[in-house]
Amino acid sequence: MRQPWIRSARYDGLLILAPPFLALAVVLLLPAPYRSTARMPLLAWVALVVLIDVAHVYGTLFQTYFDPLKRQQRRTLLWVVPLACYAAGVALHSVGGMVFWRALAYLAVFHFIRQQYGFLRLYGRQEPRDAGSWLATALVYYATIYPLLYWHLSPARNFNWFIDGEFVQVDWPAGRLVATVLYVGLIAAYAAWELRRWRRTRTLNVPRNLLLGGTLVSWYAGIVWFNGDLAFTLLNVVSHGIPYLALVWNGGPTPASARRAPRRGAWAGRYGLLVFLAAVALFAYLEEGLWDGLVWREHGTVFGWFQHLPTVASPALLMWLVPLLALPQSTHYVLDGFIWRRSK
């Protein structure tokens, strides 16, 4: 069968499908303490959190506000979403800081899960539906939901999504066992269906299976297998951020007859890729600098100039400031539910 690549075997393989496997290989090479403790080297934090995790958020700009055509087509959406996100953030933070961070964490989790489902739909777009096709959808969802269930049903872990205590956690071994049995059973059912399909048709959807394998690897290893902040961050961030940036740079999903979508606006031209990467990195650095200078005060050596800013400690001011600083993230999560939709 002709494989349903988004752009090409080389492009998809290196930038969309390989990241979780490469991240796992790096984690396996880490010294043991980094796989099972909350230790996070500063350089690793900068590379993973600032230059990939936060930076990928700003990739959305190139599919929305920085694209003249799409900015015109989605004018109302691009105004309403950030205003609504900010209003909701202020309302949540007025109830309590933890309420805000918990809501944002669960919104982020939903966004991460849906990205995997979106890639699954892209890689299954040429396949006819049959009685077992639902198994692929069920597996991509449960490959992400099971590790989250394990996290929620375990004692405190050595990592978090945003801040400690954001997820509701209850130590329930029986619940973890039931979730694990369902996990193994679903993997077995999918493997059996795929084997039967291959025997019948002698075709194998390579990118779909690599995507599912990478999802299983990154989420299980990052949350269940290892219990370290660096291991979790590396598997979580690399597996999500790099494929997202690759999809944005490709211009989104395109038909086979158009391997490269036409570029418009700030990233057009000979140095478009350099502009793209430099822009998202710069925006990420500025955002994290403001967070560090105004709120966290944790990485002064990285954000030296921002340490001259006054630390904001007043709950009344934080209620307005924190949702504003988090607005790029919340807007990214919501807009992404709209900008990648296709009629087919």
Rank of each mutant, 00 (worst) to 15 (best):
L51M: 13
E127K: 14
A261I: 13
A138G: 15
V224Y: 03
L274N: 02
Y150D: 13
A256P: 09
W45E: 11
A138T: 09
V95S: 08
T144C: 15
A326I: 00
G304N: 09
R10G: 07
W320L: 14
P19N: 05
L135A: 08
L43E: 10
Q329P: 04
A268T: 13
L318F: 10
F303T: 00
L28F: 06
G269E: 07
W5F: 11
R125A: 12
L327I: 04
D336Q: 06
L29A: 15
F167M: 03
P207H: 01
R297H: 15
L290Q: 10
W320Y: 15
W249N: 12
P328H: 13
W5D: 06
Q73M: 11
M319E: 13
L325Q: 13
P128V: 09
D292F: 03
V50Q: 14
L30H: 10
A284P: 00
L22Y: 04
S218W: 00
G300P: 05
P68H: 13
G269R: 06
F167D: 04
R74F: 12
I339D: 05
E298N: 12
G89C: 10
S94I: 02
F66T: 03
R342F: 02
R121T: 07
W79S: 06
A192I: 05
L216C: 06
H152A: 15
T201A: 08
S330I: 01
G13M: 11
P243I: 12
G293H: 01
R270V: 02
L83E: 04
F21E: 02
S8F: 07
V99D: 05
G89M: 05
L182P: 07
L274K: 02
R125V: 09
A84W: 07
E298M: 08
R208G: 04
V275C: 09
W225N: 05
K344D: 15
V50R: 11
R263G: 09
V280K: 03
R39W: 09
T60D: 07
H299E: 02
T180C: 11
A136K: 14
M1A: 12
E298P: 00
R114S: 08
P4Y: 00
V184K: 11
G222M: 02
M40D: 06
M40G: 07
I16T: 13
N227I: 10
A278E: 03
H111K: 07
Y65M: 10
L15R: 07
L318P: 11
C85F: 01
W79T: 00
G241R: 02
A281V: 00
Y65Q: 12
F112K: 08
G185Q: 09
Y34P: 00
R260M: 13
L69F: 04
F110Q: 08
R341V: 05
D229F: 14
A32Y: 01
G59K: 12
F167S: 04
